[in-house]
C-alpha cells in the first residue's frame, strides 16, 4: 500500500525539488526565449542571406561556371581573372576603381549637400515644421529612381534645362551629360534623401547644451560646430556615408544612363556575367564575393569605429 499510494510530501524535500524544478524551468526559459525571439528573423536571414551567399561562394570557386553546363573542378580562376591584363591594362581593376570613385564622389556630394539641410531642419527650423520639411525632402523617393535618372538626362543634355537656364544668364553652356560628373550628380540626387534622414536623426539628438557649454568656454559658433557638433554627430555621418557608399556601389542604372560610353561599373559587370551575353556565373560570383567582402569590411570598420564613439554618450 505504501508503495502504490503517493508519498506524503516531506516539507524539506518538497521545497528542494521545487527549487530544482524552478531552476530548470528558468534555465529552459532562458534558452527558449532567445530562440523564440531570434528564430523567425534568423531563419529568414539564413535562408535568404546566408544560404545564397554560400551558393555564390561555391559558384565563385568554379572557374567559368555556366548554368546548364557540367561544372568544372574547383579553383581560384574567377578571382585571378579580376587581375587579368587585357592589352596590358588591368581592365577589371579599373572597373572596380571606377565604381569606388563614383560611390565616393556621390557620397561626398551627399554629405556636403545633406549636412546643411539636415542641420537646418534639425536645429534651426521651427519644431512644428520639422516633420513636414523632412517629408517634403523625402518625397522624391516616391518616384522610381529610374524616372529620376531619366529626368537628369533631360536636365543635363546639351539643349536641356540646365543649359537653357545658363543661356538666360548669358553663361556659356556646359556639356556634363555622359561624364563621370553626371554620374555622381545622378547618384547623389538619388541617395541624398537617405543621407539627410540619417544626419537629421543624428543632429536632432544633439544636446544643444553642449553647444552652449562650448560657447561658454570661449568657442565661437564655428569652433563649436567643428569641435562639438561634428564629433558628436560623427556616428551619424559615418552611417550616412556608408549607406550611400554601399547603395551607390550596387547602382548600375545611373552610371549606364548618365555616364556615357566609359561607364562600366562593378554592378553592371556582375549583371552582365549573370544575365548578359556571356552568362559566366562563375566569374560573376567571384566579382560578387569581392563586392560583398569590400562592403563587409566597410561595415566592420564602421561598427568598430562607431562603437568607440557611441559608448561615450
Amino acid at each position: 500500500m505504501a508503495t502504490s499510494a503517493p508519498l506524503p510530501p516531506v516539507p524539506g524535500a518538497h521545497s528542494s525539488t521545487d527549487t530544482v524544478a524552478a531552476k530548470l524551468k528558468r534555465k529552459l526559459v532562458s534558452l527558449i526565449q532567445p530562440t523564440v525571439l531570434l528564430g523567425p528573423a534568423g531563419i529568414w536571414l539564413f535562408l535568404l542571406l546566408v544560404v545564397p551567399t554560400l551558393m555564390i561562394l561555391e559558384l565563385s570557386l568554379i572557374p567559368g561556371f555556366r548554368p546548364g553546363e557540367p561544372a568544372g573542378a574547383y579553383g581560384l580562376g574567377n578571382y585571378t581573372k579580376i587581375f587579368e591584363l587585357i592589352d596590358g591594362q588591368p581592365i577589371y581593376l579599373w572597373v572596380i576603381a571606377r565604381s569606388v570613385l563614383f560611390s565616393v564622389g556621390s557620397m561626398l556630394i551627399c554629405l556636403f549637400l545633406g549636412f546643411p539641410v539636415a542641420y537646418w531642419i534639425a536645429i534651426m527650423a521651427p519644431k512644428r515644421w520639422q516633420n513636414l520639411l523632412l517629408v517634403s525632402f523625402v518625397l522624391p523617393l516616391w518616384t522610381s529612381s529610374l524616372l529620376r535618372s531619366y529626368a537628369w538626362i533631360t536636365i543635363l543634355r546639351p539643349t536641356g534645362v540646365l543649359n537653357s537656364l545658363l543661356g538666360v544668364f548669358n553663361l556659356p553652356p556646359v556639356d556634363i551629360l555622359n561624364t563621370q560628373t553626371a554620374v555622381m550628380i545622378g547618384l547623389a540626387y538619388n541617395y541624398l534623401p537617405y543621407m539627410v534622414l540619417i544626419l537629421y536623426s543624428s543632429l536632432e539628438k544633439l544636446d544643444q547644451r553642449l553647444l552652449e557649454a562650448a560657447s561658454d568656454l570661449g568657442a565661437t559658433p564655428q569652433q563649436g560646430f567643428w569641435k562639438v557638433t561634428v564629433p558628436q554627430t560623427l556616428p551619424g555621418i559615418a552611417a550616412g556615408c556608408l549607406l550611400v557608399f554601399i547603395t551607390n556601389l550596387g547602382d548600375f542604372v545611373v552610371p549606364e544612363l548618365l555616364g556615357g560610353a566609359s561607364s562600366m561599373t562593378m554592378a553592371r559587370l556582375v549583371y552582365n556575367q549573370f544575365l548578359g551575353a556571356t552568362r559566366n556565373w562563375g566569374f560573376g560570383s567571384g566579382l560578387s564575393m569581392v563586392l560583398i567582402l569590400g562592403v563587409s569590411i566597410a561595415i566592420a570598420l564602421l561598427l568598430k569605429y562607431g562603437d568607440q564613439k557611441a559608448e561615450d554618450f
Binding site: E212, A213, P231, K309
Partner: peptide, 21 residues
C-alpha cells in the same frame, strides 16, 4: 557681447560634458 567673449564660465545643471572627449 556673445557668451564666448564674456569673462564668465558656467557649471551647467546637467554638467553638459563633451561625451566625445
Amino acid at each position: 557681447v556673445p557668451p564666448y567673449r564674456r569673462p564668465v564660465n558656467t557649471v551647467f545643471q546637467s554638467y553638459a560634458l563633451f561625451g566625445h572627449l
